[in-house]
Simulated assay, not measured.
Amino acid sequence: MNRLILHIGPHKTGSTYIQRELFNSKEKLLTNNLLYPSTMLEMFGHTGLANSIKTNSLSDFKSEISDINNFSGDVILSSENFFNLDELGIKILEESLEYNDVEIIVFYRQPTIRLLSLWHEYVKSGMTLSYSEFSSRHISKPFMSEELNISIKLNLFLKYFKSGDVRIIDYDESVANKNTLRSFMEAIGRKGLLDESYAVINKRINFYDLEVLRCLHHLSKGGELKGHALRLKYFKNRYIFKEILDKRIFPFLSGNSIPLKIGGSFIDHAMADLMNNEYAFKVSNNGNFEIENILLPSSVWMLNLEMVSEIHGIYTMLVDMD
């Protein structure tokens, strides 16, 4: 019987890397009776499909979905945005895909470190919340947060994909062993089919650049240069104001930063226990949780008028550039 392999992410668990490798190997996969559709894509993943459900435009992909449902072999659909679907969206996705044999693939990453990585990514894209502002609503009620407690969303998928089987992959272990793709292929029963390239995608930028970018996003509200375009322009032209950053702004940020330890918290231990109890999934760390020691700029640095003036100057330069 045909099998649907639904890789739902979530965000910041190596999904883009896996999608790129699957996309680049789609001909080899096809010769092995595995379809990785080259339609409904954004970058390398099937985010177009996930987003069409959110925007009530799934009918735009009627032909593509028909091709998937009629394929004689196994089909892989992959998008982190599947994880972001609400309950109605998951129901619509299930109803559109005519499969009785479904495997739901999800990567488990230490929750508090994943939360930090999510905040980092959102700031890069235009969010202006500080880490404490962003994380507090999750950490205050961790078991009600879908970002910290991924079982909430997994249970919704299993509610509608009633014949579905969940395969959980330890992201932290796969990164440590540099076998993220191999772990994915093994989980879907195709061990050894694809080779690992292990190229890092979406690398973090340093926290001082991130803080400058967060402030630039604040200034960009209501302007034409904002979000992704602002980030690209900042890094493309960073060499122009490198001296201002290195000699004035970054040293000031360094002197007004707070040391934080992320990882190995009661939340990480509690969620690991929950995943073990609900899905018999054991985090492969032998009780040794990864801890990140970071320095995050304190928000009080923005009260310094000299620094605010420097950031305004950088923003004005970026806006005035062609």
Rank of each mutant, 00 (worst) to 15 (best):
N276F: 06
G227L: 07
S257K: 09
S63Q: 13
E224Y: 11
L253T: 03
I262K: 07
K54Q: 14
D209I: 00
N70R: 11
Y17F: 14
N33V: 04
E196A: 09
E224F: 08
R214I: 02
C215A: 14
D209P: 01
G164M: 06
N70D: 09
L41K: 13
Y171T: 05
D170R: 09
N202V: 02
S66K: 14
R3I: 01
K26V: 11
E98K: 15
G73K: 13
M43Q: 15
K54H: 11
V175Q: 12
K261T: 13
E80D: 05
R114M: 04
F250S: 07
D101Y: 10
R137I: 13
N149L: 02
R214L: 04
H11D: 11
L260E: 14
I249P: 03
E133V: 08
F143K: 14
A199H: 12
L181N: 06
I188S: 05
L29S: 09
D268F: 03
L58Q: 07
V106W: 00
F252W: 08
Y234C: 08
S220F: 03
L34W: 02
V166A: 04
T39C: 09
N285E: 07
T316K: 15
G222C: 10
S79F: 01
P259H: 08
L232H: 12
I152N: 08
D165M: 12
N277A: 12
T16E: 04
K28S: 14
S183I: 01
S284G: 01
D170H: 03
S163I: 02
G189T: 04
G9D: 05
L213V: 02
K162F: 02
K91T: 02
F252D: 10
P10H: 11
R238S: 11
G189I: 03
S72T: 06
Y131P: 00
R214V: 00
N276Y: 08
S132H: 11
S309I: 01
K221S: 13
I201A: 10
I244M: 15
Y108H: 12
I291E: 13
H217M: 07
I113W: 03
L156C: 12
G189C: 09
N177F: 09
N256L: 03
M40W: 08
